[in-house]
């Protein structure tokens, strides 16, 4: 990462804070805020086969784009590390059982499984019971409005005995339900409620699926990409707070 010379390279001292902020400010102006974001970024499976090791070029390329923040903003496709196939006894076992239903990948040293929606309950159960992934770190979702299956659901799991993390991902369409993980990990309860609250994803079999952070009766799911950053449920605000607008 030393072959870069022209940019005002960030040295410890000096007036870096200001320049840093300015750069940030400019670049934030370029993409339009709000709903319409560039299309689905990570169709990982498609890019998989490349044999490049996960490390090398990323920081090398990017400063080049950074030198003049305004102009080459748009496509500049940094050919950074790409997801690699992930190989381990666990993976061998899973692929043997489920075949093409799962795609084990690794990115920057972090392993994840791209799993078919139909296999989710079995795989999660199996990961906990047979592979000791006894700690459900997090459940969340990512919204890709341009994609046909709009949502990525992500389970981040950890195994105390193996000291190993794995992410399980699946794609579901809008309004599609997904089985709840509460019977598998009690921790999933609030995490799924939050995912429901923020994305409107229904978890079947959840004991008490209702909003958790937003007030009950709120309309809309704010972490969807089509939900504007200053958007509010005006009706709720008017009825419950007695004010015209919360802005």
């Amino acid at each position: 990462m030393s072959d870069e010379t022209k940019s005002p390279s960030p040295q410890p001292e000096g007036e870096k804070p200001s320049s840093d902020k300015i750069a940030g400010g400019i670049s934030s102006g370029t993409p339009p805020p709000g709903g319409a974001k560039p299309p689905a970024p990570s169709e990982k499976p498609a890019v998989a086969p490349g044999a490049t090791p996960p490390k090398p070029a990323a920081p090398g390329e990017k400063p080049a784009a950074a030198a003049a923040p305004a102009k080459p903003a748009a496509p500049a496709k940094p050919a950074g590390p790409t997801p690699q196939p992930w190989d381990s006894p666990l993976v061998a076992k899973l692929t043997k059982q489920f075949g093409s239903g799962i795609q084990p990948l690794t990115y920057l040293g972090q392993n994840y499984l791209q799993v078919d929606r139909s296999l989710i309950p079995t795989i999660l159960q199996m990961l906990r019971d047979e592979e000791q992934f006894d700690y459900c770190v997090d459940i969340t979702a990512v919204h890709y409005p341009k994609r046909e299956k709009q949502f990525d659901i992500v389970w981040i799991l950890y195994s105390f005995s193996k000291n190993e993390r794995v992410r399980v991902k699946t794609q579901i369409a809008d309004a599609e339900h997904i089985p709840s993980a509460v019977p598998i990990w009690a921790a999933a309860n609030w995490l799924e409620r939050e995912t429901f609250d923020m994305f409107g994803i229904q978890f079947d079999g959840h004991p008490d699926l209702k909003r958790i952070l937003l007030p009950d009766g709120w309309k809309g799911h704010p972490l969807r990409k089509d939900y504007g950053i200053i958007q509010q449920d005006q009706e709720w605000v008017q009825i419950n707070l007695g004010i015209e607008s919360g802005q």
Binding site: P12, S27, A58, P78, P83, Q110
Partner: peptide, 16 residues
Amino acid sequence: MAKVSKVMKPPVGEIY
């Protein structure tokens, strides 16, 4: 400080 560009554009991907 490591060498970081002013405008950060991490490659497509995800991290936990």
